[in-house]
Design a protein around this nucleic acid. Sequence first.
DNA 1: TTTAAATACTACTAAAAGGTAGAATTAAAC
DNA 2: GTTTAATTCTACCTTTTAGTAGTATTTAAA
Lengths: 137, 137
Amino acid sequence: MQLNNTTQYAIRILSYIANKHDKQLYSAKELAEILSIPYKFLTKIMTELVKADFILSIRGREGGYKLSRPASEISIMDVLNQFNEFVEQKQCLLGIGMCDNNNKCGLHDQWVKPKKMIKDMFENTTLENLDGNGYKI
Amino acid sequence: MQLNNTTQYAIRILSYIANKHDKQLYSAKELAEILSIPYKFLTKIMTELVKADFILSIRGREGGYKLSRPASEISIMDVLNQFNEFVEQKQCLLGIGMCDNNNKCGLHDQWVKPKKMIKDMFENTTLENLDGNGYKI
DNA sequence: TTTAAATACTACTAAAAGGTAGAATTAAAC
DNA sequence: GTTTAATTCTACCTTTTAGTAGTATTTAAA
C-alpha cells in the first residue's frame, strides 16, 4: 500500500520544479543533489518525464529542465498513470482480475469509498496546489 | 498503490478458510487448487500464517490447516501488518522518511483523510465480516 | 574552433519479490 | 511396522524494480 520508488521520485522532482519560480531551468546535477536522488537514476526518470510531456528539456551547455505546461495542468493522477500506478480503475484489491458490482471480491464493497477518496484526491491535486511552501522535499 | 502478491494471497487464503464452515481442516493441496495459487508458494505462505498465529496446522496424514482463533478476531489490518504492508503509520507517501504535522511532505495534508479511511476500513473488517457469501475467491 | 557542461542512449549490476525443487518430518491408516 | 499423505525446512531459480557505468550527442562559452 505504498507508491513505488520511481513514482515517489517523479512526483518530488515535478513538485520541486513546479514550486520554485525563481529560475528558468534546473539541471539534473542540481536536482539530484537537492532532492537526494541518485544522479544516474534521476536522469533516467527525467527522460521518461520528457517523453511523457510533463517536462521540456534543453540540451547542451547551460541546458536543463522545466515544466512543459502550467503546474495547474498536471495532476498527481497524471503522473501515477504515466508510471503504471493505479492504472486500471477496476483492478481488484485482492488481485482476482477485475472487480465491479457484478463481480466482487470479498473486500470490494468496503473498498469502494476509500478508493474513491484516493482517486479524487490524486485527480484534484495538481503540481500547483501541493501544500504551498515550507514542506520537505 | 496495490497490495503485494503475497499479501493478496494471504488474505484470500484466510478469508476462504474463515468463510467455509462445512469442514474442519483444509490441506495445502486443496487450497492451492481452489484458490489458484502455486502449491509451493502457498505452503510457504501457510508457514508464515502459522507462525503469525492466524492458522493452526495439524501435521501428518489427514492433517491440514484451520483458523487458530475466531474469524471475528482477525482483522485485515492484522494480516497487512504481518506482511509488512502499511506497517508504519507515519510512513511518508513520497518516501521522505516519516510524516506528521510538524514534518510534512507536499501531499501530507491531502493524504490524511484518505489514509484514515483506508486504515479504518482495514481495521474494522475482519475475516468474519467480509462480503458474506457469493463473492469470488 | 575547441572545450566544457549539459541531456540522451545503451547496457549492465544489485536487491527485492515472486516462485520452484527436493528432501525431512510427522502421524494416521493399512 | 510400513506406507501414505500431509506439513516444514533449506536452498535455489526467475522476474521485476532499483540503481550504476560509460559513451554519444548537443550547444553555449571561451
